[in-house]
Design a protein around this nucleic acid. Sequence first.
DNA 1: CCTACATCCTCTAGCGACTAGAGGTGCAAG
DNA 2: CTTGCACCTCTAGTCGCTAGAGGATGTAGG
Lengths: 140, 140
Amino acid sequence: MKKITIGEASRKSGVKVPTIRYYESIGLQPEPNRSEGNQRSYELADLRRLAFIRHARELGFEVEAIRTLLTLQDDPHQSCASADAIAKARLIEVEQRIRSLMALKAELELMVEGCGHGRVDQCRVIEVLADHGQCSHPHN
Amino acid sequence: MKKITIGEASRKSGVKVPTIRYYESIGLQPEPNRSEGNQRSYELADLRRLAFIRHARELGFEVEAIRTLLTLQDDPHQSCASADAIAKARLIEVEQRIRSLMALKAELELMVEGCGHGRVDQCRVIEVLADHGQCSHPHN
DNA sequence: CCTACATCCTCTAGCGACTAGAGGTGCAAG
DNA sequence: CTTGCACCTCTAGTCGCTAGAGGATGTAGG
């Protein structure tokens, strides 16, 4: 039985040390055993769980969604309908976000192109910001 | 000289009342005059400034960037190079964000497609999250 | 003039998901 | 045995607001 310190767990899972402690404090990661000197001692299952959390966070899932996904993972016999629903909801969010960022990009490009690199009173960046009516695309 | 209350200013600028007070507290919006009964009284210039801020926030500029843009706007004789640089930086951020969201979208689509709507132990959503190696695209 | 009622005021605390720092303890190498 | 890093707990700060308490002001109708 090898003892994995929090530092090693961090390196192996890609989750920063204070973040691991934070996940423990909010009950996302279970409290590990402690060494004689009160230091956290992790096991392989913990590393897997941390990697799962990290990957889900990278995919933009909220902590509450991850909490649900983790309880699903812990009990593999139930239906995966919730997991599917969570992923689908996230997909819709992401698609929405991409659409609005594309509109944004178009507007920023117009601003930057229009800038004659002169003085502020001829600057399209400032002008467009000052007057939303000049916007090509309304925002959502 | 008409007196514009904070509520009217909110309606006309599209910035919520508590948000206007918040902007004032962080020095983004100047302190307006007060009525006899200590109520804020705005002028047209304030409405313009608030609309500017709101538009810039919609475009995702951070408050500190907006602070710079506002000082540029206040003094229209200086070069617009900074405004241009801020807008360009924001454009790059947005492009980056779009790219990473596209990768994300692809990954989420694979997850959702792969889900056979059965039990969790056959669920691709959970499986992909558990093992980053199955990812088609690495994240940045 | 009085009463409702909306709107205004200040102040503090909370959100999400961490991150930073202070001040102290454990542990392994030289 | 000391050096120095990694660990511990705890509190407070980040960003850009938002919510709520508890009270004052302003306006319209009776």
